[in-house]
Design a protein around this nucleic acid. Structure first.
Lengths: 204, 204
DNA sequence: AACAAATTTAACCATCCGGTTAAATTTTTT
DNA sequence: AAAAAATTTAACCGGATGGTTAAATTTGTT
């Protein structure tokens, strides 16, 4: 299961990620992290002084993936439809690799939203630039008109929600059939792309 | 703020709902619930023997709203497009009234998915019936063909996700402007209905 | 007034948990 | 071999927390 270098620090980070992601900051136990890392609690504190520091290390690592470089894709040249397809592809690929991110990020940002400001600054998030680009494409008649925020949220919703609600999908929709669930996720990118394009490309 | 009968039990349930919904099962404190209900801890345990029982009472209450009667709407007569519009309207209306539900349900079901089975049984959830109805409408040529699961998840995603990710929307997209956020939510039903219909109604 | 139920007060218990400490042991480095 | 670093062991501390208890007080009912 371990792909990284097998150093103790990496073992701790890997174990902490697993525990924090499933239990959350409140539910996670330092003892459990130590157990899962195959070490003892004393050594765990020897590497990461406190639970908070360890959590921040994990959270920072994960948050990198949660807000990918949408801005870069949008601000490149080319038709907006192509860019939307690229964003959907990039997002779904990312989420299939790290399916736990949405649930974790939403849980922790709901618990303590104060870190959001830091994140926005650190990653230079500027959604307005994205919205402006979408608006221009609408003005050029590339796609039908609507508030850019709604279009952006529609796309992100269809990408992210099925992963955030994984337990419900898994049990209610796919009756505990992991293969069916994985197949569903694998189809998502194509489905969402077609769905969005059918919804926004100007008909004649 | 209190609309219910002002009995102590109702005060407790109201307070517990607020605390559990924001802090989750792990983060909630019995003392805080007692304080918010304007009583003391002893009386809190006098009414609800344990934290677990109190939580289950709240969870059961909330879960009623989380899985509304989609089946009823879908299985009625009439064109599928009309039913989809009704479902979107019903869902958005519900979520505007109870915007905390998605985050709470997703958090707790991720923490402990074991209760899902009970819920499915208790509410007689049968998504397959919904999928079958969608499939029939596709076969009749009412809407374009795709896997019914994808269509259903697309719709639910666009309805639910913006509420589950409320902190992110609020801060990142709407720069802490509550009015803009509320306006956005108020527009959702119309936007999603148009978006979905444009995406699935057969063009010629 | 008398009784029962609801509520408060305040102390207490057991447990969990994050964190610390010091000494012993093992591993790695020099 | 010697020194340094990593790791273990095991005990401990202090605070938070869920839960209990018993007695006193208030409120509501008959």
């Amino acid at each position: 299961m371990e792909t990284k270098k097998d150093s103790t620090e990496d073992k701790i980070l890997e174990a902490a990620k697993n525990v924090f992601v499933t239990k959350g900051m409140d539910g996670a136990r330092m003892q459990e992290i130590a157990d899962e890392a195959g070490i003892n609690k004393a050594l765990l504190h020897y590497y990461f002084r406190s639970k908070e520091r360890l959590f921040e290390a994990i959270f920072g690592e994960i948050i990198k993936y949660a807000f990918p470089k949408i801005t870069q894709i949008v601000q490149a040249d080319g038709p907006i439809v192509t860019k939307i397809e690229q964003i959907i592809d990039a997002y779904i690929e990312l989420l299939i690799k790290h399916p736990f991110i949405p649930g974790f990020v939403m849980k922790e940002l709901n618990r303590d939203p104060s870190g959001l400001f830091k994140i926005v600054v650190k990653f230079g998030l500027n959604p307005q630039a994205v919205f402006d680009h979408i608006q221009l494409a609408m003005d050029r008649g590339e796609i039908i008109k609507m508030k850019p925020q709604h279009l952006a949220i529609n796309i992100l919703s269809m990408c992210i929600f099925p992963f955030a609600a994984r337990p419900i999908l898994s049990f209610v929709v796919f009756k505990d059939d992991p293969k069916a669930l994985e197949a569903f996720y694998a189809e998502r990118a194509e489905v969402i792309k077609k769905f969005v394009i059918d919804a926004i490309v100007v008909k004649n």
